[in-house]
Design a protein around this nucleic acid. Structure first.
Lengths: 161, 161
DNA sequence: CTGCATGATTCACTAGGTGAATAATTACAG
DNA sequence: CTGTAATTATTCACCTAGTGAATCATGCAG
Protein backbone atom coordinates (compact mmCIF):
# COMPACT_ATOMS: atom_id res chain seq x y z
CA UNK A 1 0.00 0.00 0.00
CA UNK A 2 1.65 3.26 -1.12
CA UNK A 3 2.02 5.95 1.52
CA UNK A 4 4.19 8.70 0.05
CA UNK A 5 3.24 12.35 -0.26
CA UNK A 6 1.88 11.87 -3.81
CA UNK A 7 0.57 8.33 -4.10
CA UNK A 8 -1.96 9.01 -6.83
CA UNK A 9 0.41 9.26 -9.74
CA UNK A 10 0.28 13.01 -10.30
CA UNK A 11 -3.52 13.03 -10.59
CA UNK A 12 -5.29 15.32 -8.14
CA UNK A 13 -6.84 13.39 -5.25
CA UNK A 14 -10.46 13.54 -6.30
CA UNK A 15 -11.87 10.08 -6.87
CA UNK A 16 -12.78 9.89 -3.21
CA UNK A 17 -14.28 13.33 -3.42
CA UNK A 18 -16.33 12.44 -6.49
CA UNK A 19 -17.47 9.16 -5.00
CA UNK A 20 -18.67 10.94 -1.87
CA UNK A 21 -20.55 13.51 -3.89
CA UNK A 22 -22.06 11.14 -6.42
CA UNK A 23 -22.86 8.62 -3.72
CA UNK A 24 -24.77 11.24 -1.77
CA UNK A 25 -26.50 12.22 -4.99
CA UNK A 26 -27.48 8.62 -5.73
CA UNK A 27 -28.74 8.21 -2.18
CA UNK A 28 -30.86 11.32 -2.56
CA UNK A 29 -32.32 10.12 -5.85
CA UNK A 30 -33.26 6.83 -4.24
CA UNK A 31 -34.72 8.68 -1.26
CA UNK A 32 -36.85 10.69 -3.67
CA UNK A 33 -38.22 7.42 -5.01
CA UNK A 34 -38.93 5.83 -1.64
CA UNK A 35 -40.48 9.03 -0.32
CA UNK A 36 -43.25 8.53 -2.83
CA UNK A 37 -43.89 5.17 -1.21
CA UNK A 38 -44.05 6.70 2.26
CA UNK A 39 -40.84 5.11 3.53
CA UNK A 40 -37.22 6.06 4.06
CA UNK A 41 -34.29 4.36 2.31
CA UNK A 42 -33.47 2.48 5.54
CA UNK A 43 -36.99 1.17 5.75
CA UNK A 44 -36.82 0.20 2.08
CA UNK A 45 -33.75 -1.90 2.89
CA UNK A 46 -35.64 -3.61 5.69
CA UNK A 47 -38.59 -4.35 3.40
CA UNK A 48 -36.26 -5.93 0.85
CA UNK A 49 -34.55 -8.10 3.44
CA UNK A 50 -37.82 -9.31 4.94
CA UNK A 51 -39.20 -9.96 1.46
CA UNK A 52 -36.22 -12.13 0.72
CA UNK A 53 -36.27 -13.90 4.10
CA UNK A 54 -39.82 -14.17 5.41
CA UNK A 55 -39.96 -15.14 9.06
CA UNK A 56 -36.56 -13.62 9.81
CA UNK A 57 -36.12 -12.57 13.45
CA UNK A 58 -35.33 -9.04 14.54
CA UNK A 59 -31.98 -10.27 15.78
CA UNK A 60 -31.07 -11.73 12.40
CA UNK A 61 -32.27 -8.55 10.76
CA UNK A 62 -30.07 -6.40 12.96
CA UNK A 63 -27.09 -8.59 12.05
CA UNK A 64 -27.88 -8.26 8.35
CA UNK A 65 -28.22 -4.50 8.66
CA UNK A 66 -25.14 -4.17 10.82
CA UNK A 67 -27.34 -2.24 13.23
CA UNK A 68 -28.33 -2.74 16.85
CA UNK A 69 -31.49 -4.44 18.06
CA UNK A 70 -32.98 -1.32 19.58
CA UNK A 71 -32.75 0.42 16.23
CA UNK A 72 -34.52 -2.50 14.57
CA UNK A 73 -37.34 -2.24 17.09
CA UNK A 74 -37.96 1.34 16.04
CA UNK A 75 -37.79 0.50 12.34
CA UNK A 76 -40.24 -2.37 12.67
CA UNK A 77 -42.52 -0.30 14.91
CA UNK A 78 -42.71 2.16 12.05
CA UNK A 79 -43.26 -0.43 9.30
CA UNK A 80 -45.77 -2.34 11.37
CA UNK A 81 -47.65 0.89 12.04
CA UNK A 82 -47.64 1.60 8.31
CA UNK A 83 -49.15 -1.83 7.72
CA UNK A 84 -46.24 -3.16 5.67
CA UNK A 85 -44.82 -5.71 8.10
CA UNK A 86 -46.21 -8.10 10.72
CA UNK A 87 -44.63 -9.39 13.91
CA UNK A 88 -45.55 -12.92 14.94
CA UNK A 89 -44.21 -14.70 18.02
CA UNK A 90 -42.49 -17.89 16.95
CA UNK A 91 -44.24 -20.93 18.34
CA UNK A 92 -40.94 -22.79 18.45
CA UNK A 93 -39.13 -20.07 20.42
CA UNK A 94 -41.41 -17.54 21.97
CA UNK A 95 -38.64 -14.98 22.41
CA UNK A 96 -38.51 -14.52 18.66
CA UNK A 97 -40.65 -12.20 16.57
CA UNK A 98 -41.04 -13.55 13.07
CA UNK A 99 -41.18 -10.74 10.52
CA UNK A 100 -43.21 -10.97 7.34
CA UNK A 101 -44.49 -8.58 4.69
CA UNK A 102 -48.18 -7.86 4.49
CA UNK A 103 -49.88 -7.64 1.15
CA UNK A 104 -49.13 -3.91 1.16
CA UNK A 105 -45.54 -4.70 2.02
CA UNK A 106 -45.22 -7.00 -0.97
CA UNK A 107 -46.74 -4.30 -3.12
CA UNK A 108 -44.22 -1.75 -1.84
CA UNK A 109 -41.42 -4.21 -2.49
CA UNK A 110 -42.57 -4.48 -6.08
CA UNK A 111 -42.63 -0.71 -6.40
CA UNK A 112 -39.11 -0.55 -5.04
CA UNK A 113 -37.82 -2.46 -8.04
CA UNK A 114 -39.26 0.18 -10.34
CA UNK A 115 -37.85 2.86 -8.05
CA UNK A 116 -34.40 1.34 -8.37
CA UNK A 117 -34.72 1.31 -12.13
CA UNK A 118 -35.86 4.92 -12.21
CA UNK A 119 -32.89 5.85 -10.03
CA UNK A 120 -30.53 3.95 -12.30
CA UNK A 121 -31.90 5.64 -15.39
CA UNK A 122 -31.52 9.06 -13.80
CA UNK A 123 -27.97 8.29 -12.76
CA UNK A 124 -26.57 6.99 -16.03
CA UNK A 125 -28.50 9.51 -18.10
CA UNK A 126 -25.93 11.18 -20.35
CA UNK A 127 -23.54 8.24 -20.47
CA UNK A 128 -23.36 5.94 -23.47
CA UNK A 129 -24.24 2.27 -22.79
CA UNK A 130 -20.54 1.47 -23.19
CA UNK A 131 -19.56 4.08 -20.63
CA UNK A 132 -22.22 2.83 -18.23
CA UNK A 133 -20.95 -0.73 -18.64
CA UNK A 134 -17.36 0.38 -18.09
CA UNK A 135 -18.36 2.35 -14.99
CA UNK A 136 -20.33 -0.59 -13.68
CA UNK A 137 -17.28 -2.83 -14.09
CA UNK A 138 -14.96 -0.45 -12.27
CA UNK A 139 -17.37 0.17 -9.41
CA UNK A 140 -18.01 -3.56 -9.06
CA UNK A 141 -14.30 -4.17 -8.87
CA UNK A 142 -13.88 -1.51 -6.19
CA UNK A 143 -16.82 -2.89 -4.28
CA UNK A 144 -15.49 -6.44 -4.27
CA UNK A 145 -12.00 -5.21 -3.38
CA UNK A 146 -13.48 -3.53 -0.33
CA UNK A 147 -15.73 -6.44 0.55
CA UNK A 148 -18.87 -4.36 0.13
CA UNK A 149 -20.89 -6.92 -1.81
CA UNK A 150 -23.55 -6.88 0.89
CA UNK A 151 -27.18 -6.50 -0.09
CA UNK A 152 -27.83 -3.69 2.30
CA UNK A 153 -28.52 -0.23 0.99
CA UNK A 154 -28.17 1.52 4.31
CA UNK A 155 -25.25 3.60 5.44
CA UNK A 156 -21.79 2.15 5.67
CA UNK A 157 -21.58 0.58 9.08
CA UNK A 158 -19.30 0.96 12.07
CA UNK A 159 -16.07 2.89 11.44
CA UNK A 160 -17.21 5.81 13.60
CA UNK A 161 -15.80 4.54 16.87
CA UNK B 1 -35.18 10.14 -20.80
CA UNK B 2 -36.14 6.44 -20.99
CA UNK B 3 -38.89 5.31 -18.65
CA UNK B 4 -39.78 1.72 -19.59
CA UNK B 5 -39.63 -1.27 -17.30
CA UNK B 6 -36.00 -2.05 -18.27
CA UNK B 7 -34.27 1.19 -19.17
CA UNK B 8 -30.76 0.04 -18.37
CA UNK B 9 -30.17 -2.12 -21.40
CA UNK B 10 -30.48 -5.53 -19.78
CA UNK B 11 -27.89 -4.72 -17.09
CA UNK B 12 -29.14 -5.08 -13.52
CA UNK B 13 -29.85 -1.70 -11.94
CA UNK B 14 -26.85 -1.42 -9.68
CA UNK B 15 -24.70 1.58 -10.55
CA UNK B 16 -26.79 3.70 -8.21
CA UNK B 17 -26.50 1.04 -5.57
CA UNK B 18 -22.73 0.82 -5.95
CA UNK B 19 -22.33 4.58 -5.96
CA UNK B 20 -24.30 4.85 -2.73
CA UNK B 21 -22.22 2.16 -1.07
CA UNK B 22 -18.85 3.32 -2.32
CA UNK B 23 -19.74 6.94 -1.62
CA UNK B 24 -20.60 6.09 1.97
CA UNK B 25 -17.37 4.14 2.17
CA UNK B 26 -15.34 7.07 0.83
CA UNK B 27 -17.07 9.40 3.26
CA UNK B 28 -16.19 7.08 6.13
CA UNK B 29 -12.56 6.87 5.06
CA UNK B 30 -12.35 10.63 4.98
CA UNK B 31 -14.08 10.84 8.36
CA UNK B 32 -11.44 8.45 9.72
CA UNK B 33 -8.79 10.88 8.55
CA UNK B 34 -10.42 14.01 9.94
CA UNK B 35 -11.19 12.29 13.22
CA UNK B 36 -7.47 12.09 13.83
CA UNK B 37 -7.40 15.87 13.51
CA UNK B 38 -10.22 16.28 16.02
CA UNK B 39 -12.77 17.54 13.52
CA UNK B 40 -15.70 16.21 11.53
CA UNK B 41 -15.86 16.15 7.73
CA UNK B 42 -18.26 19.12 7.80
CA UNK B 43 -15.85 21.09 9.90
CA UNK B 44 -13.05 20.12 7.54
CA UNK B 45 -15.06 21.61 4.69
CA UNK B 46 -15.46 24.81 6.65
CA UNK B 47 -11.74 24.99 7.37
CA UNK B 48 -10.97 24.57 3.68
CA UNK B 49 -13.38 27.31 2.65
CA UNK B 50 -12.09 29.76 5.23
CA UNK B 51 -8.52 28.93 4.26
CA UNK B 52 -9.33 29.76 0.68
CA UNK B 53 -11.31 32.91 1.52
CA UNK B 54 -9.94 34.55 4.67
CA UNK B 55 -12.25 37.19 6.09
CA UNK B 56 -15.35 35.51 4.66
CA UNK B 57 -18.54 36.29 6.57
CA UNK B 58 -20.75 33.66 8.17
CA UNK B 59 -23.47 34.57 5.73
CA UNK B 60 -21.22 33.98 2.72
CA UNK B 61 -20.06 30.73 4.30
CA UNK B 62 -23.62 29.52 4.74
CA UNK B 63 -24.29 30.27 1.07
CA UNK B 64 -21.18 28.36 0.02
CA UNK B 65 -22.14 25.40 2.17
CA UNK B 66 -25.76 25.51 1.10
CA UNK B 67 -26.62 25.56 4.79
CA UNK B 68 -28.47 27.95 7.04
CA UNK B 69 -26.92 30.65 9.19
CA UNK B 70 -27.87 29.05 12.48
CA UNK B 71 -26.01 25.91 11.46
CA UNK B 72 -22.92 27.96 10.63
CA UNK B 73 -23.05 29.59 14.07
CA UNK B 74 -22.79 26.16 15.68
CA UNK B 75 -19.99 25.04 13.37
CA UNK B 76 -17.95 28.17 14.00
CA UNK B 77 -18.64 27.98 17.75
CA UNK B 78 -17.06 24.55 17.65
CA UNK B 79 -14.06 25.53 15.50
CA UNK B 80 -13.48 28.71 17.48
CA UNK B 81 -13.58 26.71 20.70
CA UNK B 82 -11.04 24.30 19.23
CA UNK B 83 -8.79 27.24 18.44
CA UNK B 84 -8.82 26.75 14.68
CA UNK B 85 -10.86 29.78 13.61
CA UNK B 86 -11.25 33.37 14.81
CA UNK B 87 -14.27 35.66 14.59
CA UNK B 88 -13.54 39.35 14.12
CA UNK B 89 -16.18 42.04 13.80
CA UNK B 90 -15.69 43.85 10.53
CA UNK B 91 -14.79 47.49 11.09
CA UNK B 92 -16.51 48.42 7.82
CA UNK B 93 -19.79 46.67 8.71
CA UNK B 94 -20.09 45.78 12.35
CA UNK B 95 -22.83 43.19 11.73
CA UNK B 96 -20.32 40.99 9.97
CA UNK B 97 -18.04 38.45 11.62
CA UNK B 98 -14.89 37.98 9.58
CA UNK B 99 -13.66 34.40 9.76
CA UNK B 100 -9.99 33.50 9.61
CA UNK B 101 -7.87 30.48 10.38
CA UNK B 102 -5.55 30.59 13.36
CA UNK B 103 -2.07 29.15 13.10
CA UNK B 104 -3.51 25.83 14.29
CA UNK B 105 -6.21 26.15 11.68
CA UNK B 106 -3.66 26.57 8.92
CA UNK B 107 -1.80 23.57 10.27
CA UNK B 108 -4.99 21.49 10.22
CA UNK B 109 -5.68 22.64 6.67
CA UNK B 110 -2.24 21.41 5.66
CA UNK B 111 -2.93 18.07 7.32
CA UNK B 112 -6.20 17.81 5.44
CA UNK B 113 -4.35 17.72 2.15
CA UNK B 114 -2.43 14.69 3.34
CA UNK B 115 -5.64 13.19 4.67
CA UNK B 116 -7.24 13.56 1.25
CA UNK B 117 -4.27 11.86 -0.34
CA UNK B 118 -4.36 9.01 2.15
CA UNK B 119 -8.08 8.61 1.46
CA UNK B 120 -7.45 8.59 -2.27
CA UNK B 121 -4.71 5.98 -1.97
CA UNK B 122 -6.97 3.76 0.16
CA UNK B 123 -9.79 4.10 -2.34
CA UNK B 124 -7.94 3.31 -5.56
CA UNK B 125 -5.80 0.64 -3.92
CA UNK B 126 -6.15 -2.46 -6.10
CA UNK B 127 -6.86 -0.58 -9.33
CA UNK B 128 -4.22 -0.08 -11.98
CA UNK B 129 -3.30 3.55 -12.74
CA UNK B 130 -5.13 3.16 -16.06
CA UNK B 131 -8.27 1.93 -14.32
CA UNK B 132 -8.08 4.76 -11.79
CA UNK B 133 -7.72 7.29 -14.61
CA UNK B 134 -10.66 5.76 -16.46
CA UNK B 135 -12.78 5.80 -13.32
CA UNK B 136 -11.81 9.39 -12.63
CA UNK B 137 -12.89 10.35 -16.15
CA UNK B 138 -16.26 8.66 -15.85
CA UNK B 139 -17.00 10.07 -12.41
CA UNK B 140 -15.97 13.53 -13.55
CA UNK B 141 -18.31 13.26 -16.48
CA UNK B 142 -21.18 12.19 -14.23
CA UNK B 143 -20.40 14.97 -11.81
CA UNK B 144 -20.42 17.66 -14.49
CA UNK B 145 -23.57 16.20 -16.03
CA UNK B 146 -25.28 16.60 -12.67
CA UNK B 147 -23.79 20.02 -11.99
CA UNK B 148 -22.01 18.79 -8.86
CA UNK B 149 -18.71 20.54 -9.48
CA UNK B 150 -19.03 22.41 -6.20
CA UNK B 151 -16.09 22.57 -3.85
CA UNK B 152 -18.02 21.47 -0.83
CA UNK B 153 -17.44 18.07 0.67
CA UNK B 154 -20.52 18.08 2.83
CA UNK B 155 -23.67 16.10 2.19
CA UNK B 156 -25.74 16.63 -0.91
CA UNK B 157 -27.99 19.48 -0.07
CA UNK B 158 -31.74 20.00 -0.05
CA UNK B 159 -33.81 17.33 -1.83
CA UNK B 160 -35.27 16.04 1.44
CA UNK B 161 -38.39 18.20 1.41
C1' DC C 1 -35.04 60.49 11.75
C1' DT C 2 -37.81 56.56 10.22
C1' DG C 3 -38.42 52.30 8.58
C1' DC C 4 -36.86 48.36 6.28
C1' DA C 5 -33.16 44.96 5.12
C1' DT C 6 -29.32 42.19 6.67
C1' DG C 7 -25.93 39.40 9.64
C1' DA C 8 -25.52 36.86 13.73
C1' DT C 9 -27.40 34.53 17.42
C1' DT C 10 -30.59 31.87 20.39
C1' DC C 11 -34.09 28.62 21.05
C1' DA C 12 -37.32 24.91 20.63
C1' DC C 13 -37.77 21.18 17.94
C1' DT C 14 -37.01 16.99 14.87
C1' DA C 15 -34.85 12.74 12.95
C1' DG C 16 -31.94 9.13 13.30
C1' DG C 17 -29.10 6.55 15.92
C1' DT C 18 -26.43 4.47 20.29
C1' DG C 19 -25.81 1.87 24.56
C1' DA C 20 -27.37 0.36 29.10
C1' DA C 21 -30.85 -1.79 31.74
C1' DT C 22 -34.85 -4.92 31.98
C1' DA C 23 -38.31 -8.64 31.25
C1' DA C 24 -39.45 -12.90 29.18
C1' DT C 25 -37.91 -17.00 27.52
C1' DT C 26 -34.77 -20.73 26.46
C1' DA C 27 -30.46 -23.55 27.01
C1' DC C 28 -27.77 -26.12 29.73
C1' DA C 29 -24.55 -27.90 33.61
C1' DG C 30 -24.84 -30.59 37.40
C1' DC D 1 -35.40 -31.28 37.99
C1' DT D 2 -33.15 -26.96 39.33
C1' DG D 3 -30.74 -23.04 39.26
C1' DT D 4 -27.75 -20.23 36.39
C1' DA D 5 -26.36 -18.33 32.11
C1' DA D 6 -27.44 -16.82 27.48
C1' DT D 7 -30.62 -14.88 24.10
C1' DT D 8 -34.51 -11.88 22.16
C1' DA D 9 -37.08 -8.00 22.25
C1' DT D 10 -38.07 -3.80 24.33
C1' DT D 11 -37.68 0.62 26.78
C1' DC D 12 -35.21 4.52 28.17
C1' DA D 13 -32.03 8.27 28.51
C1' DC D 14 -28.99 10.30 25.72
C1' DC D 15 -26.41 12.23 21.64
C1' DT D 16 -25.40 14.57 17.17
C1' DA D 17 -26.67 17.07 13.27
C1' DG D 18 -29.67 19.86 11.43
C1' DT D 19 -34.04 23.11 10.68
C1' DG D 20 -36.97 27.23 11.15
C1' DA D 21 -38.81 31.02 13.83
C1' DA D 22 -37.90 34.85 16.73
C1' DT D 23 -34.70 38.37 18.34
C1' DC D 24 -31.11 41.84 18.46
C1' DA D 25 -27.84 44.95 16.57
C1' DT D 26 -26.44 47.30 12.70
C1' DG D 27 -26.57 49.50 8.08
C1' DC D 28 -28.85 52.04 4.64
C1' DA D 29 -32.41 54.42 1.54
C1' DG D 30 -35.54 57.95 1.56
Amino acid sequence: MPAGPMPTGGRPARIGFLLSQLGAHATELFADQTRGLGITPSEAGVVRIIGRSPGISQRELSDTLGSVQSRVVALIDRLEGAGLVTRTRSSADRRIQELRLTESGVSVLRSLRYAAEAQEAAIVDGLTPEQAAELFGLLSKLSSLRGLDAEVHVGYRDASR
